[in-house]
Amino acid sequence: MPLRYVDPHKKRGRIYEANVRFGRSRPGQSLARHLAPRVDPWLHRATAGRMNMGLVINAPLKTTGAKSGQPRVVQLTYFHDGRDPILMASNYGGAKHPQWYYNLKAHAECEFGGESFVATEVTDADEYRRLYALAEHVYAGYRDYRAKTAPVGRQIPLFRLNPR
Rank of each mutant, 00 (worst) to 15 (best):
G153Q: 08
G94Y: 11
A32C: 09
E111L: 02
W100T: 07
L76C: 07
D81P: 02
R26D: 14
P8K: 15
H34S: 12
P98W: 11
K148I: 04
M88H: 09
A140T: 08
I156A: 06
Y92Q: 08
P85F: 10
F112Y: 06
K105N: 09
V122H: 05
E115Q: 15
Y132S: 01
I86P: 03
L161M: 15
D124M: 06
L43E: 14
S68N: 09
S90Y: 01
Y16Q: 00
V73M: 12
L61P: 09
W42C: 03
G65K: 05
R164S: 01
Q99L: 07
Q75F: 03
N91G: 00
I156H: 08
R26F: 12
G94Q: 13
M51N: 04
S116G: 07
G114Y: 00
H107G: 08
T63W: 08
N52E: 15
V74A: 07
K148F: 02
R129C: 05
A89F: 07
N91I: 00
A18R: 02
R72M: 06
R50A: 10
P151S: 11
G23Q: 08
I57M: 04
D7T: 11
W100S: 06
A140F: 08
T47G: 01
G69L: 15
R21G: 03
R154G: 01
R154I: 06
F159R: 01
Y145C: 07
L134R: 14
Q99H: 11
P71I: 03
Y128G: 01
A135C: 14
D7S: 08
G54L: 04
K67A: 12
T149I: 03
N58A: 15
R160C: 03
R33Y: 10
I57Y: 01
P27F: 08
Y92R: 04
R26V: 11
H107C: 11
R143D: 04
N103G: 10
R21P: 00
A48F: 09
L134K: 13
R146M: 07
Q99K: 05
A125Q: 12
A32Q: 11
P27R: 06
F79E: 08
Y92M: 07
A133F: 02
L35W: 12
P163N: 00
A119C: 05
D84G: 00
P37S: 15
P163A: 04
K148L: 05
S116V: 12
T149D: 05
L134S: 14
Q75D: 09
Y145G: 05
T123A: 14
Y142R: 06
K10N: 06
S116Q: 14
G23I: 09
G82F: 07
K11L: 10
T77N: 00
T149C: 03
F117G: 03
D84A: 00
A46D: 04
A89P: 02
A135H: 09
Y78T: 01
K96L: 10
N103Q: 13
A150L: 04
I156V: 13
A66C: 12
A133T: 13
G13R: 08
V118A: 02
A150K: 09
A48Y: 08
